[in-house]
Nucleic acid binder design. Structure first.
Length: 277
DNA sequence: AGTGTATCCTGCAGGC
DNA sequence: TGCCTGCAGGATACAC
């Protein structure tokens, strides 16, 4: 569910209530979301204080004292919520009791999300394996162009691969390709310099705009206070099968590959010419 | 090496 | 009404 803009929104919401808080106690109701034993998870966190909360790709990074890092990946339906009165928490997997209210809760219906305690060093190694941050100042269209040239995979699959570029999921991959006028099945290396530049710009435009709208709520996504995002109404291609394209009024097509649906406008995003394989 | 497929899990929408 | 099938913002273990 949550992609870069949703995770960014959650992180910004967590900062004021988590920084300088210390973890008193942890209740684990669904140990299968932990990437280690309940014991070592609790032991790693208990008594430690939060230095900072940040984002890397789709991961929430909670930096604690003694060089300990809690890495949260929300999967499809995960939520990280500050439990103020009235908040909906139907599927609590883990509750963190802090030295001051509110508590922090990890809630996840499908439990594809994960929580993991790492040393700062191990997190550093992990982080190095992720691709660049698409919104960072030093992520240039040249870099995108060079990286695309190395791969024959379909561009939509390329964009979803967190080891190539961090933070993009199926919604924003489809939105960016539509905005850039590139068909989702085009091979990455078939994308020329001009197109790479358009795609670079489209990725950044789509992500920034979604952050401004506090993320896309199709069904499950909520920010740290339990509020939905406002970006769903702004989507121009994702999930709009059979509807008309915002740019040309052509009919939007849905096509599945890589086990995920792709959405595109056949006239704005022409079929790949080259028949590879 | 690099790519595509199947799988984890639950809830909900739509068809019959 | 109710059962059944398909589908979902992700990540990863496999097979080829």
């Amino acid at each position: 569910m949550p992609e870069l803009p949703e995770v960014e929104t959650i992180v910004r919401g967590l900062v004021p209530d988590l920084v300088n808080r210390s973890i008193r106690r942890i209740s684990t109701f669904r140990p299968d979301v932990l990437r280690q034993s309940k014991i070592s998870f609790s032991k790693g966190l208990k008594g430690r204080t939060v230095n900072s909360v940040s984002r890397r790709g789709k991961n929430i990074i909670i930096d604690l004292t003694d060089d300990i890092i809690l890495v949260v990946n929300l999967g499809m339906t995960g939520r990280l919520l500050l439990t103020r009165p009235g908040i909906q928490t139907a599927h609590i997997a883990v509750r963190f009791i802090l030295d001051k209210e509110p508590d922090l809760v990890f809630d996840d219906v499908r439990r594809f999300g994960s929580l993991e305690v790492l040393t700062a060093k191990d997190w550093e190694l992990r982080s190095q394996k992720l691709g660049p941050e698409p919104l960072s100042a030093d992520y240039t269209n040249k870099r995108l162009q060079i990286d695309l040239a190395k791969s024959s995979s379909p561009i939509r699959s390329w964009l979803l691969d967190q080891h190539r570029l961090a933070g993009i999921g199926n919604i924003y991959a489809n939105e960016a390709l539509h905005l850039a006028g590139i068909h989702p099945r085009r091979s990455a290396r078939s994308i020329n310099k001009i197109e790479a530049k358009a795609l670079h710009r489209a990725i950044r435009t789509v992500l920034r705009s979604a952050i401004r709208n506090r993320g896309t709520t199709l069904r499950d996504y909520r920010d740290s206070s339990g509020a939905p995002g406002k970006n769903a109404a702004k989507l121009k291609i994702y999930g709009r099968t059979g509807k008309s394209c915002h740019y040309c009024s052509g009919e939007i097509i849905r096509s599945v590959f890589g086990n995920r649906p792709a959405f595109y406008c056949p006239s704005c995003q022409p079929e790949p010419k080259e028949k590879r394989k």
